[in-house]
Design a protein around this nucleic acid. Structure first.
Length: 768
DNA sequence: CAGTGAGCGAGCTTCCGCTTGACTT
C-alpha cells in the first residue's frame, strides 16, 4: 500500500515533484478541472439558490477512475492544485468525487517548483478553503448564466450558432470600436522641418548633426515661407543641456507579455507561442507558461546573478523583485523563466530555440543593472524667426541590461532617431547644409494585433492566461472578427528642400496602411456588438469584469454569500433577456443602396444574406428580372464598401479560355482565389491577382499541381518482402498503409529512414 | 469545402477556466 498520494494539476509538474518527494509519495495529475456544469444544459437550479449540478465530463472519467483507485489505497491524500480560486475549486471537486475524509486529506500549496518550497509545503498543510471555492462557484455560475442566456437571444434575434459571453463579447467590442475610430478618422497633413547642420570642431574637423524645428506647419505655404526666412538666416546655439537618465529592464515574462514579444520579435501568433511554450515546458526547459506573475524564486534570482557575473561581470548584476500591476492577477505560479539560468540555448526545433532564447534573455536581463545614458538637448535659434531647431542626442554611458535585451514597441514610427551629437557650446554658429520640409499625415489609431488585444484585455482584467489564445480563436471562428493583412496604398507627399540658397519642390510617394495579421470586425461582429450594447449595457461595460471580480474577492474573504451575489445580478439580467426576446429581430437583411451600375443602369445594394455579406445588382421593387449576386471579400464591410469595390466583385468568375479543350475559370472561393479546370481546383499563388491573371499563368499553375499530386501519390517507401505495406504521403503527413488500415508515424522518426521492422513495430504498437 | 441568394421547417447551436492528448488520410 502506498502511503501518500499527491495530486497536482499538470503531469509535467507531477514528474518533477515526484523526484523531490522520494519513495513514499506517488504524485499524479488531475489534468485541470475534473468536474464541470453539464455541457448541454444550464446545470444550475435557479429557483434553488443557483445550486450547480456538476458532472464528470466523458474525457475525464478515466483520470478520475485512476485517481479514485489510488486514493482508496493511500493513507494520506495531498491536494496540491494551484493556490488560486480555480485551484482551490479543483481540490474541492477532487475531495467530493474521491470521497476524501476532511480529517486525513491535506491541502498544500507552493508557488515554485523547488525542493525547499515543496518540503515546506508538506510540513504546513491546511484544509480546503470553502470561501475561495465559493468565489470560484460564483465565477463559474455567472459565466454560465451570461453565456447560456445571451447566446440563445442571438440565435433568435440575429443568427443561429452565435455566441456571447463576459469575455468574448467585450473582446469583439474593443475591435469594433477601434474600427469605428479608424473609419471616422480624418487624416490631416502638416509639415515638419528638419535641418542638417555642420559645425567646426576644435581640431579643425567638422561634425554633422540633425535637428528638428519645434514647430509644425499646417500648410505648404507656411513651410515654404519659413524656408524662405532660413535662406539668409544665422543659426546660433542658444542652450546646451545635458541630463543623465536611467532605463530599467522590463519584468520577466508573464503569459501576456510573452505573447506580445513573441508576436513582435518572432512574428508568432498567440496560439503558436503557447504551443511552442508548452513543448518547452514539457521538455523541462522553462517554468509553467500560463501565469500572470512576474515573481522569480530565490533560487532563480541567485542563478541569474551568478550567470550575469560570469557572462558580463558583477557590475552588470542587480537583483530585482518585480510587482504585478495587472488587475485580478492571482499569481499561483512564477514568472515564465528558464528552468536553468545557465542554459543559454537548448536542443529543439527553430521555433523552440528562438522562443527559449527570448525567455532566457528577458529573464536574465530583468536581473541586470539599469542602463545609464546621457541625453543632450541643443536649442538653436534662427535669426529673423521665432521658431527654434532642437537637436537631441543620447549617449549610452553604461549599457547595463541593454547589452542583452531591448523591448520592442508595436507600430514604431521610425521618427526621432537619437544619435551622438558633436561637441557644442552656447554661442556656436553651425551652418545649415540643407533644410527640408516634409509633408506628413496624422495617423488613425492602429488595428489590434492578437497580442495587443491580449494586452488590452489584461489591462481591463478580462480573461486569464489560459484563455487568451482560445478567446481569440473563438471570436474568429464565430465570424465576429477576421485576422488579415493589408498591402496598403500609395500616397504622394511633398518635400521642400532648401539647399545652397534655393528651394526645390518634389513629390515623392510612400506606402501607407500596410498591415500584417491585424484584427478587424466583420459585419456580423458589428451587428452583434450593437445589439448586445443596446440591450445588455451592463455586461458589455469594460468594467463589468472588474466589478464582479471585486465581489468574488469579497466572497473569497468570507464577507459575502455567493448565491446572494448571483441573485442580485441575475434578476435584472434575466428581465433584460426577456425584454430582448420580445424585441424585434435585428434587420440584418436590410439593404444599403450604394449607387447605380453603369452597365445595366440598375441599383447596386449590399446586405447580409444567407451566406454572409453580399452585393446585389438589381432586384429593387418592381424589377422583374432576377438580381445578380456576389459575396463580399474578407475585410470588406457593408458600412464602408464603395460602389467601385462592389462592382469589381462581379468581375469574377472570369473565363480565361481553353486548355486541353476544357474551360479555365478564375474565381474566389472559401479558400481564396482559385483556377478551375476540368472539375479540379488549383489555388492561385499569393502574387497572382484573380482580376488580371492570364491563361498561360493559369496553365502553369494547373501543371504544377499535377506534378505535385503525382508526387503525393508515390509511396515514400516500399518493401519487396512485404508489398502490402507502404509508407505514403497523406493530408496529415506521412503514414503507413497496411492491410487496409493506416498508421501514423510517431514523432521523431524520419519516414524515409524506416525499415520494414520499424514499420511492423509501429503497427504492432498501435494495435495494442 | 471551391456555388449558393428560399419561403414544409426538424433539431441543433452557447459560456469561462483548469489541463493535455487523441486522431483524422
Amino acid at each position: 500500500m502506498q502511503e501518500n498520494l499527491v495530486i497536482v494539476e499538470s503531469p509535467a509538474k507531477a514528474k518533477t515533484i515526484e523526484k523531490f518527494l522520494g519513495k513514499e509519495y506517488t504524485v499524479k495529475s488531475s489534468f485541470g478541472h475534473i468536474r464541470d456544469l453539464s455541457k448541454k444544459e444550464l446545470g444550475i437550479d435557479i429557483s434553488n439558490n443557483f445550486e450547480p449540478h456538476y458532472e464528470i465530463p466523458a474525457d475525464k472519467k478515466k483520470v478520475v477512475g485512476e485517481l479514485d483507485k489510488l486514493a482508496k489505497s493511500a493513507k494520506t491524500v495531498w491536494l496540491a492544485s494551484d493556490e488560486d480560486r480555480e485551484g482551490e475549486a479543483i481540490a474541492w471537486h477532487l475531495a467530493q468525487v474521491l470521497g476524501l475524509d476532511p480529517k486525513t486529506t491535506k491541502r498544500i500549496v507552493f508557488h515554485e517548483i523547488t525542493k525547499n518550497a515543496i518540503l515546506h509545503a508538506v510540513e504546513n498543510p491546511r484544509s480546503i478553503n470553502m470561501d475561495l471555492v465559493n468565489a470560484q462557484q460564483a465565477r463559474r455560475v455567472l459565466d454560465r448564466l451570461v453565456g447560456f442566456e445571451l447566446s440563445p437571444v442571438l440565435w433568435r434575434k440575429v443568427k443561429p450558432s452565435l455566441s456571447a459571453g463576459r469575455v468574448q463579447s467585450v473582446a469583439v467590442r474593443l475591435i469594433v470600436e477601434r474600427e469605428r475610430e479608424i473609419i471616422a478618422f480624418e487624416s490631416k497633413d502638416y509639415y515638419r522641418v528638419v535641418a542638417d547642420f555642420e559645425i567646426a570642431g576644435a581640431n579643425g574637423k567638422s561634425g554633422a548633426f540633425r535637428a528638428e524645428l519645434n514647430k509644425r506647419f499646417a500648410t505648404e505655404q507656411e513651410a515654404e515661407a519659413f524656408l524662405g526666412k532660413c535662406k539668409d538666416a544665422r543659426f546660433t546655439v542658444l542652450n546646451v543641456e545635458q541630463k543623465p537618465s536611467k532605463k530599467n529592464p522590463p519584468a520577466p515574462f508573464t503569459t501576456s507579455t510573452l505573447q506580445q514579444e513573441a508576436g513582435r520579435k518572432l512574428g508568432m501568433s498567440v496560439s503558436q507561442t503557447m504551443a511552442v511554450a508548452q513543448r518547452l515546458y514539457e521538455a523541462g526547459y522553462i517554468t509553467y507558461m500560463r501565469t500572470d506573475s512576474v515573481n522569480l524564486s530565490n533560487q532563480a534570482l541567485a542563478a541569474a546573478k551568478e550567470e550575469i557575473t560570469v557572462l558580463f561581470g558583477a557590475e552588470y548584476s542587480e537583483v530585482r523583485n518585480f510587482k504585478t500591476k495587472s488587475k485580478g492577477a492571482q499569481e499561483a505560479h512564477e514568472a515564465i523563466r528558464p528552468s536553468y539560468m545557465n542554459h543559454r540555448t537548448i536542443e529543439g526545433g527553430p521555433q523552440e530555440k528562438r522562443l527559449y532564447e527570448l525567455i532566457w534573455k528577458r529573464t536574465v536581463a530583468s536581473q541586470m543593472a539599469s542602463a545609464q545614458t546621457e541625453r543632450t538637448v541643443v536649442d538653436i535659434a534662427v535669426s529673423g524667426a521665432a521658431e527654434q531647431f532642437v537637436a537631441t542626442g543620447e549617449v549610452v554611458k553604461f549599457d547595463g541590461f541593454l547589452r542583452l535585451y531591448s523591448e520592442s514597441v508595436e507600430d514604431e514610427t521610425g521618427e526621432g532617431e537619437e544619435a551622438l551629437l558633436p561637441p557644442m557650446k552656447k554661442g556656436d554658429e553651425p551652418t545649415a547644409q540643407t533644410i527640408t520640409a516634409l509633408q506628413r499625415f496624422t495617423q488613425s489609431p492602429p488595428r489590434y494585433s492578437e497580442a495587443s488585444l491580449v494586452k488590452r484585455l489584461e489591462e481591463l482584467g478580462i480573461g486569464r492566461p489560459s484563455t487568451y489564445a482560445p478567446t481569440i480563436s473563438t471570436i474568429i471562428t464565430r465570424g465576429y472578427v477576421i485576422k488579415e493583412s493589408r498591402d496598403g496604398e500609395k500616397r504622394g507627399y511633398t518635400q521642400l528642400t532648401l539647399s545652397k540658397g534655393k528651394i526645390a519642390r518634389k513629390t515623392l510617394t510612400e506606402t501607407v496602411g500596410k498591415e500584417k495579421n491585424k484584427l478587424s470586425p466583420t459585419d456580423i461582429g458589428m451587428i452583434v456588438t450593437d445589439f448586445l450594447d443596446a440591450q445588455f449595457a451592463a455586461v458589455m461595460d469594460y468594467n463589468f469584469t472588474a466589478s464582479v471580480e471585486k465581489e468574488f474577492d469579497e466572497i473569497a474573504m468570507g464577507e459575502k454569500s455567493w448565491p446572494e451575489m448571483i441573485r442580485s445580478f441575475y434578476d435584472e439580467f434575466h428581465s433584460k433577456v426577456d425584454e430582448a426576446l420580445e424585441s424585434k429581430p435585428v434587420k440584418s437583411s436590410q439593404m444599403h443602396e450604394l449607387g447605380i451600375d453603369p452597365k445595366s443602369g440598375k441599383p447596386v445594394f449590399v446586405k447580409i444574406g444567407r451566406f454572409g455579406p453580399v452585393a446585389q445588382i438589381g432586384g429593387a421593387e418592381g424589377d422583374e428580372e432576377k438580381p445578380r449576386f456576389a459575396s463580399l471579400k474578407k475585410g470588406q464591410l457593408i458600412a464602408t464598401i464603395t460602389l467601385d469595390e462592389a462592382l469589381a466583385l462581379f468581375d469574377l468568375p472570369r473565363k480565361l479560355g481553353e486548355f486541353e479543350d476544357k474551360e479555365v475559370v478564375i474565381g474566389v472561393g472559401r479558400f481564396g482565389p482559385y483556377a478551375r479546370h476540368d472539375g479540379k481546383f488549383v489555388s492561385l499563388a499569393k502574387t497572382d491577382d484573380p482580376y488580371t491573371i492570364e491563361l498561360p499563368r493559369a496553365i502553369e499553375l494547373i501543371e504544377q499541381k499535377r506534378i505535385k499530386d503525382k508526387r503525393m501519390k508515390e509511396p515514400i517507401k516500399i518493401f519487396a518482402e512485404e508489398p502490402g505495406l507502404q509508407v505514403l504521403n497523406g493530408r496529415y503527413g506521412p503514414y503507413i498503409a497496411f492491410d487496409g488500415k493506416n498508421y501514423r508515424i510517431p514523432k521523431g522518426q524520419e519516414p524515409e529512414g524506416l525499415t520494414l521492422e520499424a514499420c511492423r513495430a509501429i503497427i504492432a504498437k498501435s494495435k495494442k
